[in-house]
Design a protein around this nucleic acid. Structure first.
Lengths: 354, 354
DNA sequence: GCGTCTATAGCAACCGGTCTCTACGGTAGG
DNA sequence: CCTACCGTAGAGACCGGTTGCTATAGACGC
């Protein structure tokens, strides 16, 4: 029978003390070899490294995080990794985080504001260096208040709330904001359509209360106003940022008999659905109707016809989010960034009647 | 001047002891209120909860993980979140993990076998409950050996290596494997093409040494053999699982003047590139050439024409990976799962010459 | 030859919860 | 009236690494 705490044969991970015992030194010495920032005699270091190798030792990240205050982790909160829009931002976040020696925690919320709040709370428990929340915000007052609360709570423990692609919470709230020019992109695209001769443009995929959608529609409206036009309310359809809404919405639009020569889809996914509906109805794009999207996800290239859309610098959004949050000490005053957008002309648009 | 450790005004997070002091109880009591699995008088519990609320207390996940041996985390190692193939598996993993009360760490490797190894090592440090590695494996012997080593190392500390969409490491290696019938899907698809009358099928996107690719090609070959045919080596092009390879490969094929009536693309992304090249060359799909893909990512629906492809149960792969790994005690013997695949006929295929 | 300085290693406290064991007040049973 | 027991709360060790302070040995100066 085993005496006292005789290990069951290599079960359980080895600790610094195990390594220390084997190398004939103290735990502190092992820790110093690990850290590297302390003089350790070459011969001692060699013995310690040998012992580590023999025991197949790896540090316990939690114990380390408990001592020091940072745990070298960045949290990433997103609606749904499946959407290419989010996926590309995620890639930027992951790349930058890994370049800065941070790990990346991923959480999805499936568009549920309640889950956003719950997830951010969990990230507080994890003591992440930064908590990056991506995607449109809800204008709900209670929701905004909770987020503001989290911003302060995270700030208090040396962490940072980062909002990507959503508006700031207000002055004095300690949060980093990385936006892109949502309104400007929609304005540019709408202006392009209007000046090409399209007078009646349908807007597909308005999501009331979602900041991203509100801003896009706002650019759409401003472009009309500037040219002395007013969009027809009947051509603006409420829905979601999904392919299926694009499909249903376009069908509904066609069935209603409303006149339009162009469709402005809230996102590229919505455009994809709309294109399918138009194809099924034998409406030719761009001969009969022009279609534009928003986001410029890779899919846009593969749609038929290749989609004219608004480019959003996805990966740079992700990278900037991590960079600004982690280096907020060195670059103060730059905690609100707005990246530019631009339209990309492809094959889904044409002057009407040509 | 502040006396001794006078806090700088709410700086630093509050601890169980802070809560205990405010509630006039001991730290243990606070911990028990937190845990819930121990009798605490209702009045005491109320006082503690009140104190927590007032101090805006949240537990420190690291301290908790240090005591107990599990940290309630699942690690997810993937080539590139951007690919829809991975994104959907990621969604399955995330959903199941969150359903099982686990957080999800995301790491990307950009197809670099070295980074896979480095990342798995980091996950060992994090003491994740399971480490899920997704995507084809490299047949490199040293690589396999390292993975086997990790499997044992993780097993020793109660964690689990999970391989998704890659072959087992060998008998006796403590790892969970969730595969899908890669070879069978390719066999079924190739058989479908051959029996429809396609005799000369080009294979685009062979990646030598990558298990996924090898298996698909193997199904492709077996289908030929069964019908007494032999694929023409000149029609099998080496490359990568990327859209750009599909584009370049198809162009090269057309330029070579080789005869073929169908293209079997290694993945849907490869098919997307091939379709573009064919369209540019005014080769009609499916009238002149049929094209099929593999994976059935959502993109397949939006390609033109809608792509005939092999369906892979992405999300279920992810969910099963988490489920099997976390419940391996309860369901022993089921640590190797092979999910089925099936072909999905859409508009990119037709009998030749019709 | 003695004192001091420097290089290196050890001791022990600490990070923040959790958990086991012990203690204590009160009630019920003998 | 005393003891046994139940319900509840506290003390303190522990998880595994880090780190400030201390200790010791050898080197060097005088």
């Amino acid at each position: 029978m085993a005496k006292k705490t005789e290990p069951v044969m290599g079960n359980d991970a080895s600790t610094v003390r195990d390594v220390a015992a084997r190398a004939g030194v103290s735990a502190s010495t092992v820790s110093r070899v690990l850290g590297g920032t302390y003089p350790v005699a070459a011969s001692t270091r060699a013995r310690v490294l040998k012992a580590m190798r023999e025991l197949d030792y790896v540090v316990n990240a939690h114990a380390r995080a408990l001592g020091g205050s940072t745990n070298k982790t960045v949290a990433f909160v997103v609606d749904d990794v499946t959407g290419p829009f989010y996926a590309h931002i995620a890639r930027g976040v992951e790349e930058q985080a890994s370049a800065e020696g941070r790990l990346c925690m991923l959480c999805t919320t499936h568009g549920d504001p309640q889950r956003v709040l719950a997830v951010v709370e969990t990230m507080r428990e994890q003591r992440a260096d930064a908590v990056i929340v991506v995607g449109g915000a809800w204008e709900d007052k209670a929701y905004q208040d909770r987020m503001t609360h989290f911003a302060h709570a995270l700030d208090r423990v040396g962490s940072r709330l980062v909002l990507v692609g959503r508006p700031p919470l207000g002055p004095g709230v300690p949060a980093t904001v990385v936006e892109y020019d949502n309104e400007g992109g929609a304005f540019a695209m709408t202006t392009h359509l209007l000046t090409s001769g399209h007078q009646r443009i349908a807007y597909l995929g308005r999501v009331p209360g979602l900041s991203t959608s509100d801003q896009r529609l706002s650019g759409f409206r401003r472009a009309h106003e500037l040219l002395g036009l007013a969009p027809d309310p009947k051509l603006i359809l409420d829905g979601t940022f999904s392919r299926s809404h694009g499909y249903q919405g376009a069908r509904q639009l066609l069935a209603s008999g409303a006149e339009f020569t162009a469709v402005f889809a809230g996102t590229d996914m919505v455009a994809a659905g709309a294109l399918q509906a138009l194809r099924e109805a034998r409406v030719s794009v761009p001969d009969d109707v022009s279609v534009v999207g928003y986001d410029d996800v890779p899919l846009a290239l593969d749609l038929f016809p290749a989609l004219t859309t608004v480019n959003v610098p996805h990966e740079e959004l992700g990278r900037a989010a991590v960079r600004l949050a982690l280096h907020r000490e060195e670059l103060p005053g730059s905690q609100h960034l707005v990246l530019g957008t631009h339209i990309v002309l492809r094959d889904s648009t044409r002057r009407p009647g040509h």
